[in-house]
Amino acid sequence: MIVAAAENDAIGKDNKLIWHLSDDLKRFKNLTNGHHIIMGRKTFESFPKPLPNRTHVVITRQDNYKVPEGVIVVNSLEDAIDASKKDLNPFIIGGGEIYKQALLVANKIELTRVHDSFEADTFFPKIDASIWEETSNVSHSRDEKHDYDFSFLTYIRK
């Protein structure tokens, strides 16, 4: 899984990101480039167009959901994982409900922790320290390109 979440686990509001952190977007691009990205319909619809050099797998309950050519549509997280099985490192990219389901099956979380709290309508589930071990923590201070302090954290399932 890959996510940017605030201290209060906020990840979005009105189907939009709450902040713009240049280094976080670069990290997302670098890590997901060339991989399958699994997401819910609302997350997919938040993009102006499919992201380049990634295979999009969209989970929706809607029948006959229309997507651009090359986008895979499935009805469950299990089907999304199955559709991504040729990729040794697919990424689950949201939203909130998909993250909740994926927390049960994922083996790694790439988290950008934004060191502030925000009003939101979508949240990342709590990370249970008895299940997940933090293996990397790189801090970044606020600067001219970043309005907030943030950290890149990696968690591996114990």
Results as ranks from 00 to 15, higher is better:
I92Y: 02
K100I: 09
E119F: 06
L111Y: 07
K42W: 14
L31W: 07
V71Y: 06
Y99P: 01
N89C: 06
F47N: 12
N30W: 01
P52W: 14
N89W: 00
P68S: 14
F44M: 11
R157A: 00
N137Y: 10
R157G: 01
K108T: 15
F124M: 15
Q101Y: 09
I2W: 08
W132M: 05
M1T: 07
I37K: 02
V114G: 08
K86R: 04
F123A: 11
R41A: 04
E134G: 08
Q62P: 04
Y65T: 03
D63H: 12
N107P: 00
D82A: 13
I38M: 10
K49Q: 15
T112R: 10
I131A: 05
H146Q: 00
K145G: 01
I37N: 02
S139Y: 05
N137H: 13
L25V: 00
A80S: 10
E97H: 08
V138Y: 11
D23I: 01
P48S: 15
D128I: 11
L31N: 07
D63Y: 11
L21Y: 04
N75K: 15
R61V: 08
P90H: 03
S46W: 13
N15I: 00
H140N: 13
L77W: 06
K108E: 15
Y148R: 06
K126L: 12
K85A: 09
R142L: 12
Y65N: 06
F124D: 11
D14M: 10
H36C: 15
G34N: 06
Y99N: 03
H140S: 05
K16I: 00
P68F: 14
D63G: 11
K42T: 12
G96P: 02
A129I: 11
R54W: 09
R54Y: 10
K42A: 10
S151P: 00
V138K: 12
E97W: 01
P48A: 15
Y65S: 06
F123E: 13
K66T: 15
T154S: 00
P50K: 07
V58C: 14
E7L: 15
T43A: 03
A120S: 13
L25H: 01
L25R: 08
P90M: 03
T55K: 15
Q62F: 08
E97S: 08
